[in-house]
Write a protein that binds this DNA or RNA. Structure first.
Lengths: 191, 191
DNA sequence: GGCTAATATAAACAAGTGTTTATGTAATTA
DNA sequence: TAATTACATAAACACTTGTTTATATTAGCC
């Protein structure tokens, strides 16, 4: 992902710390200490703390958008598209739970303009998923209801998964998780 | 809730700011400015910033525990107990979305000992809900599955609701929301 | 070797933080 | 009225923050 291995290590450690402490509580000094270098050295790899957050957040957002575009480009039915969306979220969570946590909670600390842009893109992203849900309702395969409301329930059902970065859960099988969450969303828990 | 109206106003404003900015980003100076008083005056009402967070978090946690205890004390079936749990969460969210957001995200900034206590209590709380789900599985009214996994899906489905404190959604009917979320959790979205 | 660029550090800076102290005024109570 | 409590403020304190500057060391390349 990053050609420069030192820079890559820096980004990795920063991501971990950012997710663990949150943007405001993470200090450049602590990051430096984890990297066994002086705080000033960090600025050889990144322009500022804010730039680090910015890059991380928009990177993930871009991946979401790319993933969703690919799904939209298929000729799948609404239900299959939704399954792919679920899969996308779960895979991204398993690939990097820390980044997912940052994506979910730290966008508040973006600078005003970038925050607006971020929120707009997210709104856009979520609207597309609402459209898939709405299509399913129109096709008659999903129960009728407010597509935005249902989309919120759906995405929220998946969001907790980033907490599974604990050692005990780390070996969970993403395919199995995918199956279980999809069953929950599609069929609920009642027999 | 608070006999002293000035103190009550202080707590209210602090709660708002804490949910809006997060613990680390909220400053005593900004809080003072919203209250139209000097920063030092705040300490007539609260011992410290940390004490404010602490009180807020454990207050909500206590309400959750009390609510759940009442549900457990009934002779309801598992499915009805779960419905009551859903109702409890939704009502508390509608009563005070800001506090719910704080409860969800700001516990990380508790002091070490209190944080441990908080997390333990939450673990305890969640385990009780798992038990209800497990009872439903044993009764044969819920599909078989990992009760902890399902409980996470269930609680997560509700969690996004605090975002409905925006003006446009403020007049949403809690009873209707309750009905819709319960249907989602029990029956999913597939027809 | 000599040169250039990357990488490292120490020291300092300006701004912001929660909190305390000292001191005052308004409200309540005796 | 006098005394006690609640409420308010200005100024200062000790500490932490992200970032910059100046300077040194290392690595790769001709």
């Amino acid at each position: 992902m990053d050609k420069n291995p030192k820079r890559a290590k820096f980004i990795r450690e920063a991501t971990f710390l950012l997710s663990e402490k949150g943007y405001k509580a993470m200090t450049m000094r602590e990051l430096a200490s984890r990297l066994d270098c002086d705080k000033s050295n960090i600025y050889n790899y990144i322009a500022s703390k804010q730039a680090l957050l910015d890059q991380l957040l928009f990177d993930i957002a871009d991946k979401f958008h790319t993933g969703l575009s690919e799904i939209e480009a298929t000729s799948y039915s609404a239900i299959d598209k939704l399954k792919e969306v679920i899969r996308l979220h779960i895979r991204m969570t398993f690939d990097n739970p820390n980044k997912m946590q940052i994506h979910a909670y730290e966008w508040r600390f973006l600078e005003e303009d970038r925050k607006k842009l971020f929120v707009n893109r997210r709104k856009n992203y979520e609207a597309k998923i609402s459209n898939i849900v709405q299509a399913g309702i129109d096709e008659g395969v999903f129960k009728s209801g407010d597509s935005e409301f249902l989309r919120n329930c759906i995405l929220s059902s998946i969001r907790w998964l980033y907490t599974w970065n604990s050692p005990s859960k780390k070996n969970a099988n993403p395919l199995e998780v995918e199956k279980n969450i999809t069953e929950f969303i599609l069929g609920g828990i009642k027999k």
